[in-house]
Design a protein around this nucleic acid. Structure first.
Lengths: 191, 191
DNA sequence: AAAAACGGAATGAATATTCATTCCTATAAA
DNA sequence: TTTATAGGAATGAATATTCATTCCGTTTTT
């Protein structure tokens, strides 16, 4: 076990960027090594193989994201404020960890994810599921399966952030507020 | 030029399914050949290489999709009816060409798409862009960049259809109607 | 000086692509 | 009507390339 963890982090950072931009299969170990400025062999000092690397990365960011959403969650507040918290959480997390959400999204149903990764991801979804289920009980949320509501929010948000990443849109506060309102209108109950 | 076009179609069909299910890089030519019940070499009689194959496929379905949306477009009708036409178009197209939309979505910003493919895809987006721009002029549509509105609709819809493909949700008429309403509420102007 | 960490060339497996050969089918000769 | 033949289509084994992983000499740390 190495003393310094710098290289390990460099490797993870480069892997995140490359996996997000090109996908797991199109990203080679030498590519990651070059980007991280380490030798190809060094990667194997920290990760048994490419699959362990990608699962480590996946679990790391899913957990971070989950924690970001759960931290300061306004348990007692109104539903709109809770939604705001979750939405802000997505935005903040995306800003802090550039490619992380996109990486998670594009690899959620990948063939190389292990049981632990799938488990962690379902925990993440449960935060949203609980929120929507409670909301539907009080008629604040549209009568659709929670899975469907999650898909609409997540799909829309991430597709949007892809445009921002590519530079086709600028992530102004105004735009983000508008998108939040749009997503809220998509899931809330309309009378 | 072959007399029958059957094999070419078999190859394209198999490639569509495999690219959609596993992605371009995780799909090998022998896989496609086996699935299509042809020799690996036969694929090269019809397509110069793997990239030409994927671009052919991409352009084919983007064009088909564009035509499906443009056909019977209710030019003079109200905005809600036009939206319904577009949304129904997405649903019908997805039903008729199982993996096509998902394949398009997951490969839209892939590194191997050529200029023609990108061009075709931007034509497709323009249908939605025109619709949203006109709607905003008459205050029927939310004041957000059309690109953002497209991302929300497309992202949400496709994420949802992925759940259906995987079997986590059933594509009942009721569900689809609900999702359409949700998407409409996401983009329409609220007073 | 010894031990650990590193780098990157070497290896072998997997993959895209090629190509010599076989297989059809259609036409023509018998 | 049957048989021969040409030429395009199809094949899959062979080749060339790419990639994950390993190995070992070098550098850094203790």
């Amino acid at each position: 076990m190495p003393t310094s963890t710098t290289k390990r982090d460099d490797i993870l950072d480069s892997a995140l960027t490359l996996f997000a931009e090109r996908g797991f299969d199109a990203t080679t170990i030498p590519m990651i090594a070059t980007d991280a400025k380490v030798g190809a062999g060094t990667i194997y000092r920290y990760f048994a193989n490419k699959e362990v690397l990608v699962n480590t990365l996946f679990q790391h960011y899913v957990t971070l994201f989950k924690e970001a959403l759960e931290k300061y969650y306004p348990e007692g507040a109104g539903i709109r404020e809770q939604f705001h918290h979750l939405f802000q959480g997505m935005i903040r997390f995306t800003n802090e960890h550039d490619h992380a959400l996109y990486f998670i999204k594009t690899h959620t149903s990948a063939y190389f994810l292990d049981a632990e990764s799938r488990e962690q991801f379902s925990h993440l979804l449960m935060i949203f599921e609980d929120f929507f289920e409670a909301g539907k009980q009080h008629c604040h949320i549209r009568e659709l399966p929670s899975k469907a509501l999650i898909a609409i929010i997540f799909g829309g948000f991430l597709q949007l952030y892809q445009l921002i990443r590519v530079g086709e849109l600028e992530a102004s506060a105004e735009l983000l507020a508008g998108v939040e309102e749009s997503c809220w209108d998509a899931v809330r109950h309309h009378s």
